[in-house]
Amino acid sequence: MPAPLPTQPDDLSIGDLAAATGVSRDGLRFYEARGLIRARRRSNGYRAYPLEAVELVRYIRTAQQLGFTLAEIGEGMTQVWQQPDTDAAVTALLREKLISIDARIASLQAMRDAVATRVGLPCPLATT
């Protein structure tokens, strides 16, 4: 269960965000370096994240668990946030991912079948 959020609006420290999302501080810095999340800097130089970053990081983590790369997530987030119907935009991304996964499964099945037909056959490189 995620840790409770602080009561200060629009001002999560990196530790607060890490505790609320289960993503390490290094992971959050990595997401920030990739442009997936943004922080402003406090007067002391520390990062300060808006409360919305919690949902954004959870979105990123879920997308990763579904097989999306960080590049795909970054592109997809841009597309999703620009659409008036974000549910439809996410559904479209998921459909595209299903097509990609099905193509990979078909390719792997063909490779498996090719290997299976060679099991037990003599090595084609062996000399007789």
Rank of each mutant, 00 (worst) to 15 (best):
K97Y: 02
T128R: 15
V23F: 01
A126Y: 03
G74N: 06
P124M: 04
E72S: 09
W81G: 00
L28H: 08
F30Y: 15
R118K: 14
A39Q: 04
M1F: 07
P50I: 05
L51R: 14
L70F: 12
P124G: 07
L17F: 09
Q83D: 14
P84V: 11
L36P: 11
A126H: 06
P2V: 04
S100R: 14
E55H: 07
C123Y: 02
G74F: 08
P84H: 10
R25P: 04
Y31N: 08
P84Y: 01
Q79P: 00
A53E: 07
L98T: 11
R40Y: 01
M77D: 00
R42M: 03
P9D: 04
L28G: 09
R41Y: 06
Q8Y: 00
T128W: 09
K97L: 05
R112S: 13
I14C: 10
T117N: 11
D26R: 14
L5Y: 01
Y46N: 12
G45M: 06
E72V: 06
S24N: 13
A33E: 14
R41F: 04
R34C: 12
E32V: 04
R47C: 13
L93Q: 13
E55I: 00
V57P: 05
L5F: 01
D102T: 09
A88S: 12
L51A: 15
V23C: 12
T117I: 06
R29V: 08
F68D: 05
